[in-house]
């Protein structure tokens, strides 16, 4: 940029306060109890001091998740802020854990905390699932019926992650996922 000197005594405030969650599957406890809040932050500097000292997603154990949600929204479908919503789903191939996973997850976080989406009010949070069969990243929005907003977020996501136009990503409505009985069509939107 230009020759702007930074005043490091002032932290840069974020539009929203965000909470990082960690999920680890302990069968002796309920699913909800296995979701643990790690920390919340509302400045750029506090975000980095958290991010710089936690493990990157690619080094987590299989079966675990990180979730980053606006403070007050729990990373689950049942939360009032999520129950009418859905998620843009990015399914990664196994080999992408080494190539793309950490870059995608960080770029998604930067989109969230930097309010990169025009319709960022619609964004609830994002989840990364570390799984043997292939990792997944979801960007959760609060109202699946707001098609224009959902599509804007999906398009911006693809652009920011440099996902090729040959690859299509889909948006799943949480309610459909919950009610899923067979292999009926999965995605309500795709970009």
């Amino acid at each position: 940029n230009e020759n702007v000197s930074m005043d490091y005594s002032i932290k840069h405030p974020l539009q929203n306060c965000w909470t990082l969650w960690y999920f680890e599957n302990d069968r002796n406890q309920s699913w909800e109890k296995n979701q643990r809040e790690i920390a919340s932050f509302d400045t750029v500097e506090d975000f980095w001091s958290l991010y710089n000292h936690i493990k990157p997603a690619s080094e987590l154990k299989q079966g675990t998740d990180y979730s980053l949600f606006k403070k007050g929204i729990r990373p689950m479908w049942e939360d009032a802020a999520n129950k009418k919503g859905g998620r843009w789903l990015i399914s990664l191939e196994k080999k992408q854990r080494t190539n793309d996973l950490d870059r995608y997850w960080l770029d998604i976080i930067l989109c969230l905390i930097g309010e990169a989406f025009e319709n960022s009010d619609e964004v609830c949070g994002a989840v990364v699932n570390i799984r043997y069969k292939g990792d997944k990243i979801g960007v959760w929005t609060g109202d699946a019926s707001k098609g224009a907003a959902v599509l804007e977020i999906g398009r911006k996501l693809k652009e920011r992650l440099h996902i090729s136009n040959r690859i299509t990503i889909g948006y799943e409505v949480h309610k459909d996922t919950m009610d899923k009985t067979g292999s009926s069509s999965k995605y309500s939107y795709s970009v």
Binding site: L14, W48, R160
Partner: peptide
């Protein structure tokens, strides 16, 4: 009010600020 928006590079540049 105005939304506080940060560019990706701006955020990355603050990663190792003191």
């Amino acid at each position: 009010g105005t939304k506080i928006v940060y560019e990706r590079n701006f955020l990355l540049n603050l990663r190792n600020s003191p």
